[in-house]
Write a protein that binds this DNA or RNA. Structure first.
Lengths: 149, 149
DNA sequence: GGGCGAATATTGTCACAGCAAATACTGTCC
DNA sequence: GGACAGTATTTGCTGTGACAATATTCGCCC
């Protein structure tokens, strides 16, 4: 009647399905909480994080793009919105008038420092707490190749 | 200078980051390929899959929603679009005039059978091939809790 | 059997990601 | 030194997911 093969699937199927569901569920939950307690989206927090960690709190658009999950065109708009609420500021790049660098403001730093702490608690509740330390390591080892390089 | 703590992060951080990136990268790549060779989105394939495996090739909207990654409101529109290209058909539920059940058409079955084979190859290339069998199992074991229940 | 809260599905509206085209500038080739 | 290919970023457009509000029907309770 139904298709047994697709119900059970190849040996890697459960791994893939686990990733999809874990991502979807945890992502949705922590984003909702982040919005609640800090008033920003995960895209904002992600960008702020890259800038906060960058030397001088400053990064060019293309570097910001390369480090994030958003594509090329997406980043322009993300920065538009973060800039509109005063968490970052655009500056021209000396020596290359095509370039734009993005600088995190003091307000942005303060917000980042506050929200990242709560955000980590959120991820711990929605994700980390449900796995053993050995499982954390196993998953990290298996998947690190996807963000390294 | 930069914040060491957030660069390195808590012990589970790499596991979580791995999930996000693996999901984003693999998802994007296989969706692009699916669109190319079969002309449908992953949302379509997912819905077709649930219907194909359901007894009678038929499922109520709410059951379809519950089994998918898309929320409530999304499913109405997904079915709208799949129906528009003739892969599924809406039917009224006998005995409950609020209800709508969705039925996969012959055309839908054929397309599903063809595209799922290619899709599995795509996932194998983008994901499965990069992990060892032991890693598949480890990831599946750690993350199965997110889709079971 | 009429009223009322719950369930089912759809629709309105908004925000945002993705892609391609446009814009602005750089460096180089001849 | 002017044309031209390449680079950096933005903008226009479209599709689609999220959420709230709506319409319709059901089950129940009195």
């Amino acid at each position: 009647m139904a298709n047994e093969a697709t119900s059970v699937g190849p040996p890697w199927f459960d791994a893939w399905r686990g990733i999809i569901f874990a991502n979807a569920k945890v992502f949705r939950e922590v984003e909702r909480k982040l919005e609640e307690h800090s008033g920003i989206s995960l895209a904002f927090l992600d960008a702020l994080s890259r800038l906060y960690d960058a030397p001088g709190g400053r990064l060019r658009m293309q570097d910001l793009q390369a480090r994030s999950l958003f594509t090329h065109s997406g980043m322009t708009r993300v920065v538009d919105r973060i800039e509109a609420v005063g968490l970052v500021r655009r500056e021209s790049v000396p020596g290359d008038r095509r370039g734009v660098s993005v600088l995190i403001t003091e307000k942005g730093k303060r917000l980042y420092e506050e929200s990242i702490v709560r955000h980590q608690v959120d991820i711990e509740e929605a994700f980390a707490r449900r796995l053993t330390p050995a499982q954390h390591k196993a998953v990290a080892d298996a998947l690190s190749q996807f963000w390294q390089g």
